[in-house]
Write a protein that binds this DNA or RNA. Structure first.
Length: 805
DNA sequence: GAGTTTGAAACT
DNA sequence: CAGTTTCAAACTC
């Protein structure tokens, strides 16, 4: 399973983001199994901004023969990782093919004792993209300086029984990794390939004082599985818990905890055994106004053999920078371990984004399932991407194991009052995921897929708008279970629906409402991409619960929502300014002419004629989608994306072709998206560039007009509110002194007379050809006069009353 | 609101 | 791939 931060997207090496490449990487040539186990590919370490702990100590495991151990006792105090705001974490548990855990800056590489690499068996702090040891099951937390150079560069030295990691943090403070004496041997033994007994390893990285602390605790040595045929290695569990502590603010402490638990089920004893990674993931996000802790629990189970480790099975996880208290729990467990719902509060509002990807040796879960036992079959994966900064899109994929029954569910507040959920007829896992803002920060969830036959499916969808969004466009994946993330505005749920075998489009390009064809042999797995609105509009409530009476099978359910930009518009913009209804008449709203369709949305409240862009014409819609994708594989990707490397400006992916508008009208897609034309545009007479005086003038006018509109709207709203309040107030009309209260003088007649006066002023201004500003002024002045007269009358009446009384 | 302009999408 | 047509939004009156 991969979790990739959107922010990391731009800096992640291709081998990380490209799942295909990863698959290849994880599939070393069969003729070189030994090599793979001893010299795994060098992991690409992802730079990240993480404060480096001043002191890092590594503690040995309790017992060398520890097989399966779930680390559930770690707390924020014993193992913590302090990550500064904006820190990105990429945590990858490596399989035999190579290290698979890496984090950004402030990297700590924890190599298993029996790591193939001698001398680097324990830990490593390195600069960005520094080759790490090929040790399997490595945990790499890579410290990278802001500039990727010396400040964060660390060196790793192993001195006898101690492993020292030296380096300087951003603050120039040395980093020390103290390696217990018991740790030195495993690495060497691994290199020899002799006596590969499990070497329980426990890491504790703790820093003292109030400064950031990085804590990594690993229990058991999964890497020992490599090349080891010992039956004692039935299951090994590696757990890493990283807790982030940030300086306690007045608003409350911000805590981010990352718990990674990886279980390896080493069943086979022969080198011919295959690896069947089972990945179950659950990501729940929930946020509260006070930025509660976020917790992500991802269960991963890998059943493997010594040989299998060298052939495949790796998992990566990248966790986006955590700008707020986070809590991430990643658990990999044996297939048979119980899996329980885990509360994973995640504050999406802070721009976090998590990209979860399933990576398996097989091209699809279906294949994996066909080649493996039921328990070891790669299960459908549920993944959620949480839009973070500039994150364009947020999608949830809920693979099904069975052909679903489509159901309609009334979702209050949703533009689309239906949700297509699919019923799973098989015994595959249906999981109920609950999110709670008060979830236990140290929750560790068993990764075992749950079997919930015909159980109601509930998806609690905490909806929190993301402050910012960053585009994440993962490359096409071969696995049917994927996490899609693109820079589209709308949140989307890909949910099980009726299978449509004839369509197997690129998931990353699919619009909502799409039903994905089941992968061959996948057991009729189907996916439906639902319009995001139904969720988006449910953001009024903290949770959205979708229920299916029949339920559908998923190893886990993940729900999280974030508002994402649409073609460059910020979430707030898209939220506050719903897309216009289309007016298509001839395209049936099944071509990209239709904005609704192009945006991957169903038409709703549109003015279109003969619209097929709805669930009633799902078949036609799907065909149209397929046709569009055939013409343009990225047809449904947002046109506005990030520019070239180093370019922070958004730009049109294709560029415009304007010829007459000068790119200063909304005909131009660049101008419409409020971006300037770029070198890829083919426009003629373009005036939409930085220094263009026309553009500046236009922008100023537009800004002024917008401000004016806002002011007028605000004034109207306020005035209307005041008048309404006066006219509808139910307070006694007679004051305690017996006189009429002033507002009682604003009778219907008075109000009408006032309106007449105002209208007269408007007419007068119109007759005189006064500019609008002057007209408004005259009207407002007249309104002031009217008010004064009313107040004067009220005061006079009160005075008279006082005299009379 | 009707008609025109415009440029992307679709088509050839 | 280029030219043409279709289409719907943007724009003008």
């Amino acid at each position: 399973m991969d979790v990739v931060s959107p922010d990391l997207n731009s800096i992640l090496p291709d081998e990380i983001m490209d799942t295909e490449a990863m698959a290849m990487e994880e599939d070393p040539p069969a003729e070189t199994p030994a090599q793979s186990s001893h010299s795994a590919p060098e992991p690409a370490q992802v730079p990240m901004e993480t404060e480096v702990p001043e002191i890092v100590s590594l503690c040995p495991a309790t017992t060398p023969m520890q097989k399966t151990e779930a680390l559930t006792t770690l707390t924020a105090t014993d193992s913590t990782l302090c990550v500064s705001t904006g820190t990105q974490l990429v945590v990858t548990s490596s399989s035999s093919t190579g290290p698979k855990m890496a984090t950004g800056p402030s990297a700590v590489t924890t190599t298993q004792p029996n790591s193939p690499v001698v001398g680097q068996s324990i830990a490593k702090l390195s600069s960005p993209f520094t080759p790490t040891s090929p040790a399997n099951h490595q945990l790499i937390i890579n410290k990278v300086a802001a500039d990727g150079k010396s400040p964060g560069t660390t060196l790793l030295k192993q001195e006898g029984q101690k492993l020292l990691v030296t380096g300087l943090s951003k603050m120039g403070q040395p980093i020390v990794l103290a390696l217990p004496n018991t740790w030195s041997k495993p690495a060497t033994s691994q290199g020899t390939g002799v006596d590969m007994k499990p070497q329980p390893t426990q890491f504790k990285v703790v820093s003292a004082g109030t400064k950031p602390v990085i804590g990594v605790q690993a229990v058991s040595s999964a890497s020992q599985l490599l090349g080891s045929s010992s039956p004692l290695q039935a299951q090994q569990l590696k757990t890493v818990q990283i807790t982030k502590k940030t300086p306690v603010s007045t608003a409350g402490p911000m805590i981010t905890k990352l718990i990674i638990t990886k279980a390896l089920n080493n069943k086979g004893l022969t080198s011919q055994a295959t690896v069947t990674p089972m990945v179950t993931g659950r990501v729940l996000t929930q946020s509260t106004p006070v930025t509660p802790p976020r917790t992500i629990t991802i269960g991963e189970t890998i059943s493997t053999t010594p040989q299998s480790l060298s052939s495949s099975s790796s998992s990566k996880m990248a966790i986006s920078p955590l700008k707020s208290p986070n809590k991430v729990t990643v658990a990999a467990q044996p297939p048979n371990s119980p899996q329980k719902p885990v509360a994973v509060p995640l504050n999406v509002a802070l721009g976090q984004q998590i990209l979860t990807m399933q990576q398996t040796p097989c091209t699809s879960p279906a294949k994996a399932g066909s080649s493996q036992s039921t328990a070891q079959t790669v299960k459908p994966v549920q993944a959620v991407t949480v839009g973070g900064v500039n994150t364009p899109q947020f999608k949830t994929i809920i693979p099904l194991a069975t052909p679903p029954n489509v159901q309609q569910i009334q979702v209050p507040g949703s533009r689309f009052h239906y949700v297509r959920l699919v019923t799973a007829t098989t015994g595959n896992a249906v999981q109920t995921v609950n999110t709670s803002t008060t979830s236990n920060p140290t929750t560790i969830q068993p990764a075992k897929p749950m079997v919930m036959n015909t159980a109601a499916v509930r998806m609690s969808v905490p909806i929190v708008p993301a402050q910012t969004v960053k585009q994440v466009v993962p490359k096409p994946m071969t696995s049917a279970a994927q996490v899609m993330s693109s820079s589209q505005t709308q949140q989307r749920l890909i949910m099980p629906a009726a299978p449509l075998p004839q369509i197997q489009p690129n998931l990353t390009n699919l619009p909502p409402g799409t039903v994905l064809a089941p992968a061959p042999g996948s057991g009729n797995m189907g996916y439906a991409v639902l319009p995001a609105q139904y969720v988006t509009q449910l953001q009024q409530s903290t949770f959205v619960t979708l229920a299916s009476s029949s339920g559908f099978s998923t190893p886990s359910s993940i729900q999280s929502q974030a508002r994402l930009p649409l073609n460059g518009l910020s979430p707030s913009e898209t939220t506050s300014r719903p897309r216009k209804p289309c007016n298509c008449t001839k395209s049936q709203c099944l071509k990209l002419y239709c904005d609704c369709f192009a945006n991957g949305e169903f038409c709703n409240n549109c003015n279109c004629v003969n619209c097929f862009n709805n669930l009633d014409h799902e078949g036609d819609r799907l065909k149209a989608i397929k046709a569009c994708l055939d013409r343009n594989p990225v047809a449904f990707k947002p046109k506005i994306g990030k520019g070239k490397e180093g370019e922070s400006e958004r730009r049109h992916s294709k560029g415009c072709n304007c010829k007459k508008s000068g790119c200063l009208k909304n005909y131009c897609e660049c101008y419409e998206a409020k971006i300037m034309c770029s070198s890829i545009c083919k426009c003629v007479g373009c005036k939409n560039f930085e220094e263009s005086p026309e553009r500046k003038t236009l922008m100023h006018l537009a800004d002024a007009a917008e401000v004016r509109v806002q002011q007028q709207t605000a004034a109207k709203t306020k005035l209307s509110s005041q008048i309404s309040d006066l006219l509808t107030r139910t307070a006694p009309a007679i004051s305690s002194s017996g006189g009429k209260l002033p507002y009682t003088f604003v009778t219907k007649e008075v109000a009408e007379a006032t309106c007449d006066c105002l209208l007269e002023q408007a007419r007068k201004a119109e007759r005189c050809n006064q500019p609008q500003a002057m007209a408004e002024r005259l009207i407002l002045e007249e309104f002031g006069h009217c008010l004064r007269r009313i107040i004067s009358s009220a005061a006079k009446a009160k005075t008279d009353c006082s005299i009379n009384c």
